[in-house]
Amino acid sequence: MKRRAALVMAVAMLVGCQREQRDLRLDPPVAAALDQVAPTANGIGGAPPDVYVALGGPYESNAYNLGEGKRLYTWFNCKGCHADGGGASGPALMDGWWRYGADPVSLFVSLRDGRPNGMPAYRDKLTTEQIWQLVGYVQTIGMASATTAAPSRNDEMQSRPAENRAPAAADLPTPPSR
């Protein structure tokens, strides 16, 4: 009984820590290592850096990083092309249909190096950590089920349900076939 309680406590602590931890200043070697993705030859898919795995993928499940990603999404005018995820001159992000892959490594490469037909490269504008934060956030836009770590609505006019009220995409038509 006592051991089970301790186990539950330990799991809760791990989960709690993982979701709520705030690393305000990343260790410089870790930050440098986070850049070492190994994409496949066509730039879609590939292996994440070892340190990303070792950290436990904190950019997909950590509330603070997701919140920072959402802030960067506004600050770096991702809205200018992708709107609130519905798409404008750039493709939609909330329909769960990605031209250059939906996995973190593909998204990281998309953000860092840019993609043909308009997606600019952000490697000189964002730190590696910030790119990963954006990767995590962008994934929640297209998420099919709600997560308690996702950010909630912004204090502005609303065009779609908040990320933590996913799936926002349920209201949209099915993605176009290629």
Partner: peptide, 29 residues
């Protein structure tokens, strides 16, 4: 318990919005 899990509130005992609101206070704190 939340504080022990690094989930302690960080918004002041008065919890002013918008700092405590959905946009600026991510997570469950």
């Amino acid at each position: 318990v939340a504080f022990a899990l690094d989930m302690g509130p960080d918004i002041g005992w008065f919890g002013y919005v918008p700092l405590s609101g959905p946009q600026y206070a991510p997570g469950k704190r």
